[in-house]
Design a protein around this nucleic acid. Structure first.
Lengths: 271, 271
DNA sequence: ATTAGCCTTCCACTGGATGGAAGCGTTAGC
DNA sequence: GCTAACGCTTCCATCCAGTGGAAGGCTAAT
């Protein structure tokens, strides 16, 4: 039929999000047809919605017919979790200055580690993570630190899921991972060795907030000089304490922008 | 009438943007009624749309009934202008390390300077700008640098507008400003002295991209030791050249995420 | 007990959203 | 130079998703 019916159960909101999600993965500009496919929407609908979004500044057109995310969206989104980023950034910079290694700050978003900030030098290194990017909690040092120092139910819930391996070294055995996390909790830090990508290792420590885990900070180090990563622990602990002190006065929710990851936010479980 | 009519001429898209825009200014969480007022929408409509946006992860609820921007939106938006930020950041950090002063990178977004990145130390300073924030081009050093080193029509168009003063020192006289910009172009850098807020001065230089202005970098310095800001020029020029070299291979559009600010993008004018 | 503020639910109505189809401009193939 | 392929834009009859006033519920303050 011409017009009318649409896909029942799809609100305009969800269609708009579907369009935005098309840009969640791809870094380059997309054309209308690609967006249409990615969002699973008819071309004409995509055309109209994209047109509106461009007018609003949410999307923008490049010269050669490409479409990409607009600056307005970026500017609005900068308000998210601003308190944590603005407060913690100088300390993450300090961490980088003192160690010379790529420094990261991550929080838990559902069952992924979400990278909030990242400080690195000019030398080109292979990057697996990026600000705004996510990696599985069990594969990264910051993720392991989050798991190891969260309340027990977080780790328990996480270990019931399939542990996708990213490299041959990724821990995919729940029992093995649980042991490692217990050791991490006992030692006070977590490490990974080529578990995200070959050639890089990482070490991370938790950052507390009002007695509970708030986020974690860590270093990414090329395997070539990752023999004694623990040498960086004093600095990591020092920076962690500094961030803890600097953020102590901010309510946790304001800090993170969320209460807890949706996937693992089992209401009533924390009692 | 019950239901139906709605406000003619308002698409769902525009309503969603109106809701998001409510967060463009305020830094704290808002409640439903506040959003409803800010977006100029009926409470029930706001309720439904906000509910959908929360389900999608675009917004998120805080514990006490507040609503704020969600992490998913932030994560998606991080892809905007990523190339420029990712590439330039180490250099902006360098700028901070070498000068010890708050370092900024800005581009032109319409007739505002949009702050793309910002590196600063732990000491609390009064902040007028923030990443994702905008300030008038004529009041800031990065803005003046952008005006002074853009094509002529940009400056001409800008000077026809009202020049809103932010402090008693802000240049609000077009003739005076034009002279100052000419001098800046001749000298190769721009400065402001307490023109954004009392107590801070700034100095900035342009960063070129394929022969045209791409963005600008600058320092914000407390008036107390801003006597000889020009001492930082060698570093500023050095970093500018480095950024220019590092971004040379990236197409300008990919870099900025936009062709040019909508307000001043007069088609055909550049011929 | 009353008021005020805020959130949530309900539902009859209708206009904005819809998407297939056709048109158009550009590029690619032969 | 003709045809085909591709991608973007416009059109419009159809109709259901979106709408918002009203009513109800909950909590906190008076």
């Amino acid at each position: 039929m011409a017009g009318g019916s649409s896909q029942p159960g799809r609100s305009v909101t969800s269609k708009i999000l579907a369009i935005l999600s098309a840009f969640e993965t791809s870094r380059r500009a997309l054309n209308l047809t690609e967006i249409s496919k990615a969002a699973d929407l008819p071309l004409s609908t995509t055309h109209r919605l994209v047109g509106e979004l461009v007018d609003e500044g949410i999307l923008s057109r490049t010269g050669n017919g490409g479409i990409q995310l607009g600056l307005r969206l970026w500017a609005i989104a900068q308000n998210t979790g601003r308190q944590l980023r603005d407060t913690a950034r100088p300390f993450v910079q300090d961490l980088f200055s003192l160690t010379g290694e790529t420094s990261q700050l991550a929080i838990r978003d559902g069952n992924m580690a979400l990278y909030i900030d990242r400080v690195y030098g000019t030398k080109r290194i292979a990057r697996a993570s990026r600000v705004g990017g996510r990696l599985p909690l069990h594969a990264t040092a910051v993720g392991k630190a989050i798991l190891a120092f969260s309340e027990d139910w977080v780790m328990d819930a996480y270990l019931e899921q399939h542990l996708e391996p990213l490299t041959p070294h990724t821990r995919s055995n729940p029992v093995q991972l649980r042991n490692e996390l217990s050791r991490a909790r006992h030692n006070g830090y977590a490490i990974t060795r080529e578990e995200v990508r070959l050639g890089t290792c990482s070490i991370a420590v938790p950052v507390y907030h009002t007695g509970r885990l708030g986020c974690s900070i860590g270093l990414v180090i090329p395997t070539s000089h990752a023999a004694n990563m623990e040498r960086h622990l004093p600095v990591l602990y020092g920076i962690s304490k500094r961030i803890e002190a600097a953020t102590a006065h901010i309510p946790l929710e304001t800090l993170l922008g969320i209460i807890s990851g949706p996937d693992m936010n089992v209401p009533g479980r924390e009692n």
